[in-house]
């Protein structure tokens, strides 16, 4: 993963949603999953900032606690929001890359 740091994509809530779209995870798993997925390693503060926000917005929800690690799952509303955001990103990246002359 030796990528240029400037190429990282960092929008913690979106990253969290995308990570949970695959299945419920607890915090540490999310961090590693997100790093694998996007190359961005979220700190605990940033991660829980995103979790707090998403939970309040009803886009993710808790599963039953197992030991101290609290797993979260994505809600149907969260899926909808994630899909909409990613569609926008796709259209945006498509257009952006076209302007750059990339194939």
């Amino acid at each position: 993963m030796a990528r240029d740091e400037r190429g990282y994509y960092s929008d913690p809530p979106l990253l969290v949603l995308a990570s949970l779209a695959e299945g419920p995870k607890h915090g540490y798993l999310m961090i590693t999953d997100i790093e694998e997925m996007s190359g961005t390693r979220l700190g605990p503060g940033a991660l829980y900032g995103a979790i707090t926000r998403l939970e309040r917005q009803g886009l993710i929800a808790r599963l039953d606690e197992r030991e101290r690690r609290q797993p979260y799952r994505i809600t149907p509303e969260g899926r909808r929001v994630l899909r909409a955001k990613l569609e926008t990103l796709r259209a945006f990246s498509h257009l952006g890359l076209k302007r750059l002359g990339a194939t």
Binding site: H26, G27, L47, Y48, E65, E67, R68, Q70
Partner: peptide, 11 residues
């Protein structure tokens, strides 16, 4: 608090 502590301890 509890889950955040757990995460911090793993970091």
């Amino acid at each position: 608090g509890v889950e955040f502590l757990a995460l911090l301890e793993e970091s």
